[in-house]
Amino acid sequence: MMTLTYLPYDAAEVANLRAGGPDAYGHPAERAVSSGVGTPCRACLRNVPEGADMLVCAARPFADLHPYAETGPVFFCADECTPHQGGDVPPILENSPDYLVKAYDATDRIVYGTGQITRKADIARYAAQLFERDEVAYVDVRSARNNCFLTRIVDLP
Rank of each mutant, 00 (worst) to 15 (best):
E50W: 00
Y25D: 13
R60E: 08
Y68T: 03
E94C: 11
D108C: 09
A15N: 03
P83T: 09
F62E: 06
T107E: 15
G36D: 08
R133A: 10
A11R: 15
P91F: 13
V37F: 13
Y104F: 15
V74K: 02
F131A: 07
A58G: 13
A121G: 05
C77V: 04
L65G: 10
P28Q: 03
A121V: 11
P22H: 06
L130T: 02
H84A: 06
D105V: 10
G38F: 10
Y6L: 07
D53N: 12
V48L: 04
Q85T: 14
E70W: 12
S34R: 08
A58S: 14
L100D: 08
Y6R: 04
L55G: 02
E80N: 10
R18W: 02
V48I: 08
C44L: 11
G20M: 00
D105S: 11
G20N: 01
V37N: 11
G113A: 07
Y104M: 09
A32M: 08
D23Q: 04
E135K: 04
A124H: 07
A24R: 02
L65P: 01
D64L: 14
R109P: 00
G36M: 12
V14A: 14
E30Q: 15
A78Q: 06
H66F: 04
V101Q: 10
N95G: 14
A78V: 09
P28W: 02
A52F: 06
V111N: 02
A43S: 15
A24H: 02
Q85I: 05
A78C: 07
A52Y: 03
P73M: 14
F75C: 11
A124Q: 09
